[in-house]
Amino acid sequence: MKLVAVTACPTGIAHTYMAAEQLERVAKKMGFSIKVETQGAMGIENELEENDIKEASAVIFAVGIPVQKAERFEGKKIFEFSVQEAIKNAEGILQKVKEEIGC
């Protein structure tokens, strides 16, 4: 299963990157492929390309502020969580996504 995610928090220096790291780490452990875009104080990094989004089965937002360039995800199935949740319970999040999209 292929996933894409966006992480973003108000200050954009800590939680954004922790959430990204945690999602990447846990997804790998669970055998998913995931690409995580960070929207932090450094701007957008590891930006999701059109192709990444097209191929993804689902989109995860782990955010505390509105996502930039959200129009890219129109028509996709989006799961939204808080940044804290992604850090503390990435496994639960991914499990839930897996169940909902049924694969």
Binding site: A14, Y17, M18, T38
Partner: peptide
């Protein structure tokens, strides 16, 4: 950000 990722 590098440090934050590491702390995970």
């Amino acid at each position: 950000p590098k440090l934050s990722r590491k702390l995970i």
